[in-house]
Design a protein around this nucleic acid. Structure first.
Lengths: 338, 338
DNA sequence: CTGAAAGCGCTTACAG
DNA sequence: CTGAAAGCGCTTACAG
């Protein structure tokens, strides 16, 4: 049913080798026969079979992005960076979803072992160093985004510094009891952000109070959901020793938290993390991650790695920028604004 | 470097045919030799090479989802449905991004011609009937979501009815001058929603006023962005003959519109379209689309189609549900709430 | 500039 | 239950 290279060769009156060359090293075939072949191919709706090509050439001209797609707000931006980087290169991109309810390692291994692609971009997978090291045995190019490891090229974000800046900002505003609206406690970004939060407290000689570290009950997507933020905020509002402000580990959670605040009529200053495109529109103060650049850089890394397997891994850390909007400013000004 | 079936066969002391059988028809090989093979394979980190498998068997056990990933809020839900439907089946899923700045047809054709998968799910691609018909020549299973066509199985949404319900609700509340916050005018969903809006007007004997049909200037993603909603709302607020309420073609746009309203201090009742998960948290009244079910059904269709190429195409239309929250309720109650 | 032929890593009748 | 062999649709030295 599908046309093969034989059909085209026959119809064009050439050998299959020539047809193949038209697609691979066009310059080595006489313009007139190339034209003829292309014409026939177009008429018959022919396109080389990727599986056969990949098998015969051992080249795939394809990279794969492994990503917990549920983190889609993030993904969109990363993806834009990746695609812009891939532009002009004749490399194609395929996305595979990593189920975040299961261990990432076996899923990643299954994909890599099948030799789908020339290389793999792992987005926000946060595996342990030991797990990542175990991937080295496949000797396949791997590039990490939003994650850091000694074993592979990585493009990460300074979560600790971001949390520090946000917390420090609130402290400088005069707040001392700052709640830390957390996610799944052992998630890498949450750990790093907690560290930054604590650093800001110490830097300002404020005692750490474990009661202020609060998590929602929903743990879907590591607790990075509106629902989880809502639940956590409800708890924060019930604290006996009241919190004065909130540092929240993600914009999406902050949206949930804001609903809880509205319901209770108590609006605490809040700064969150990510700077999704909606955040600007709902006036959320937040720590901005340059997701586009991270996607771009990680892709550049991978392309380089594919051609230079033995270079030392490179590591780039993007620095946070604090974006102040309404949500972190004292309630007074909010009321006045109305 | 990568282990092949020959390595495993040799190490396990069997033929390559036996190794192959272990992976394909496990029940036909003696348990003890199967165990042996699996053991060796695991030790050597072997996994059949997908390209070779696909080529030899002409089966791919793989479907592909072609989607403008920029529509990511939508995608996440669709994807959940797809994955739940695929569960247990040993069919894998790959996602490919369709660049929404270019024509979808050539992109889709390129992918299909390469025979990547057993079948394809086309999400929100909105091609013309003629374009879709041209895809039939590839004789490959195709299933549409959020789109409708006579030529393929489709799972669509009753956009017209959704817009009708929303508009009618506002009219029943007593509003007569209702702005239609539009997207790219020739986008299929926009056209359908406009039709529903107009139907609601006629049903209530309200004259249609073209001045109330307003679009933002940003046309990225067919105008389905916060920015475009913001711009459009600014225009609505400047109308000489003022609008009393707004029907908005998407939640994301409504978020932009709400910012514009806050800035101007005029808050008009607004109902939008989609019911994203955030919408609940920001109190957006909206028309709910059952994206999960749509993803599930479209996948079921595709799996069926793969095994029954010649059945008549089936079409299912999901009906809208109006979800009323704060944003559509009179401004008074909003002020009281503070 | 072009063709004949070996090979990529599998699957699958066929034969036993 | 297992093996030898042909074939899937390509690419790529090699030879001319």
């Amino acid at each position: 049913m599908q046309k093969t290279i034989y059909d085209i060769a026959k119809a064009a009156g050439v050998s299959i080798a020539t047809v193949s060359r038209v697609y691979n090293k066009a310059e080595t075939v006489k313009p007139s026969t190339r034209k003829k072949v292309l014409q026939v191919a177009d008429k018959l709706g022919y396109q080389p079979h990727v599986y056969a090509q990949g098998l015969a050439s051992k080249q795939k001209n394809r990279i794969m992005m492994l990503v917990p797609v549920m983190s889609n707000y993030f993904l969109t931006e990363i993806l834009r960076g990746t695609q812009d980087c891939l532009d002009n290169n004749k490399i194609e991109l395929t996305i595979v979803n990593i189920n975040s309810d299961e261990q990432p390692l076996p899923q990643v291994e299954n994909i890599i072992k099948k030799s789908w692609a020339e290389g793999y971009i792992l987005v926000s997978l946060h595996m342990s160093e030991a797990e990542l090291e175990s991937l080295k045995r496949y000797k396949t190019p791997i590039s990490l985004v939003d994650d850091k490891s000694d074993h592979f090229d990585s493009v990460s974000f300074n979560n600790e510094e971001g949390a520090f800046k946000a917390t420090n900002y609130l402290i400088k505003k005069g707040f001392k009891r700052i709640a830390f609206l957390s996610g799944k406690a052992d998630s890498t970004p949450v750990e790093q952000r907690l560290r930054g939060y604590r650093k800001a407290l110490s830097a300002n000689k404020i005692a750490f109070d474990a009661e202020l570290i609060i998590t929602g009950d929903s743990m879907e997507r590591d607790g990075f959901t509106e629902k989880s933020g809502y639940e956590a905020m409800k708890k924060i509002l019930k604290l006996k020793h009241e919190a004065e402000a909130v540092f929240c580990t993600s914009d999406i959670k902050a949206i949930g938290a804001q609903k809880a605040m509205r319901e209770s009529g108590i609006v605490l200053p809040i700064i969150s993390f990510d700077n999704l495109s909606i955040s600007d529109y709902i006036g959320l103060s937040t720590v901005s991650q340059p997701m586009y650049s991270m996607g771009f850089d990680a892709t550049k890394n991978l392309l380089h790695r594919i051609n230079h397997q033995n270079d030392e891994p490179t590591h780039k850390t993007h620095e946070p920028e604090l974006v102040i909007r309404d949500s972190s400013e004292p309630v007074i000004s909010k009321k006045e604004a109305i």
